[in-house]
Design a protein around this nucleic acid. Structure first.
Lengths: 265, 265
DNA sequence: ATATGCATGTCGCAC
DNA sequence: GTGCGACGTGCATAT
């Protein structure tokens, strides 16, 4: 049976089905040269050489070559591709011994992917439009903004003085003082605080000397939650934990933005 | 024009093309219930709520629902999906106001993806077989094996004693002694060593006391290369660096395997 | 270009 | 299940 279907109810998608492997070759050449996104469902093997090296024998998989010349090879399980190549590859497709080969080469770091097709079930080319803006709520930056806007979400009487304060190991998220004038270092996390978060906060405290008699430096880790091991370490080091929900922060940031807007109206 | 193409030159792939959105609905239901991998090319918006939250308005994208009920939403650029959901979702598709909605819900952590379709260009269902073994060369584990097999690749006279030795901050990759009986802690990296690598090695040294008079503990960081900042820190801390190429390690491991084989033959 | 740190990281493995 | 570390991490951002 020869199926030769190469159109759909629109011009954004072209679906190619052929019986013989080589018949796909001119289509691949065309779609690659036109910078389409290409989906290939087929039976192929993959060799990768670069930062590491890997190989996988023949199997049925999905190969995606995107407009930006990034390459993904997906199996039927998992979010991560089994092999991939970041954007900006030089992609070369060629015939050899009645087989189709596809090579994706990237410089800096030099790495390449070599795919040998035994069979192609279908090639699909896409020319699609996506101009929508992606909005991610409650980034760590927004959490910081929320704390600066409404410091009492950390504790009553907290007075932020600076943010992104530079110390030797990095940048302190928020720095300020409590009601008694004790210096406070705040480490924010949008995700559950881990032992690493605690260690980082401790580093900041160690690096920042504040030798004033009668004042005790406080370290506060603020995150939606904390892992058990992190909590143990935190207590041992005499640091504090405060639940801070990114969603709450988002609301505060939004409220602030609204009030700014009304100022302008 | 009504295109109603739903077969290919094999039974591994089904391609569905319809003019009206709702017509896709029964196919989605069917493919989901049969645990196929499904590709959907369409115009849709996505809301994500979970560990964080995000939204993106209508746009033309590729949606993949895998056999393991993981979900990927890919745009035409980049290796990473714009939205995704790890394996094990409860997936629910439903019609509402002549629109198709798809919801993927995951527990622990609780998070969900809601997709609203404005248009579907094509639905492709896959039932493919991939039993090939994936082989990754020169993992950190193999580097360790290489060092244990042929310790002189680190330095002449090195005598490994143990590997994955447990100390407070974690596991020491390789532990041993030099020719003069000084204890040696080795940290292996398959990628360029960073400041973090140096810090980690330092932690191991600090955690492992060896109070023998006349003996000096040595810390060796072995990696294919080292960043400039890491090197500065390393020197300051009195630690050592040794270039160790994962590809070289791979060769050593392979040679060892061959020799094992010949032993059995 | 290099360095640094975040991420809905994902994934695998030990407990 | 949870914790912890590795990863060809990818990716954005500051330098």
């Amino acid at each position: 049976m020869t199926v030769n279907f190469s159109s759909t109810n629109n011009d954004k998608i072209k679906i190619i089905n052929k019986t013989n492997l080589e018949e796909y070759y001119p289509y691949l050449e065309e779609f690659l040269s036109k910078n389409h996104t290409i989906l290939i469902i087929g039976d192929f093997s993959v060799e990768y050489i670069g930062r590491a090296s890997s190989s996988i024998g023949s199997g049925e998989r999905l190969l995606i070559i995107k407009k930006d010349k990034s390459v993904l090879i997906h199996q039927e399980k998992g979010v991560s591709p089994i092999n991939w190549q970041p954007p900006g590859n030089l992609i070369h497709v060629f015939l050899k011994d009645n087989r189709i080969f596809l090579k994706a080469v990237r410089r800096r770091p030099r790495e390449s992917l070599i795919i040998e097709f035994n069979k192609i079930f279908s090639v699909i080319s896409l020319l699609i439009k996506d101009n929508a803006e992606f909005i991610m709520d409650a980034s760590e930056e927004q959490m910081q903004e929320a704390v600066l806007r409404k410091p009492e979400i950390l504790f009553k009487g907290f007075k932020p003085v600076s943010s992104e304060k530079h110390v030797k190991p990095g940048f302190i998220d928020v720095y300020g003082f409590d009601e008694e004038g004790n210096p406070v270092i705040v480490e924010l996390k949008r995700t559950p605080a881990t032992r690493e978060s605690v260690i980082q906060l401790k580093k900041y405290l160690d690096s920042y000397s504040y030798p004033v008699v009668g004042r005790k430096m406080r370290g506060i880790l603020a995150a939606p939650s904390i892992t058990k091991s992190a909590e143990i370490l935190l207590n041992k080091l005499g640091l504090e934990f405060k639940i801070l929900n990114p969603r709450e922060c988002m609301k505060i940031v939004k409220r602030y933005r609204t009030s700014r807007l009304t100022e302008f109206i």
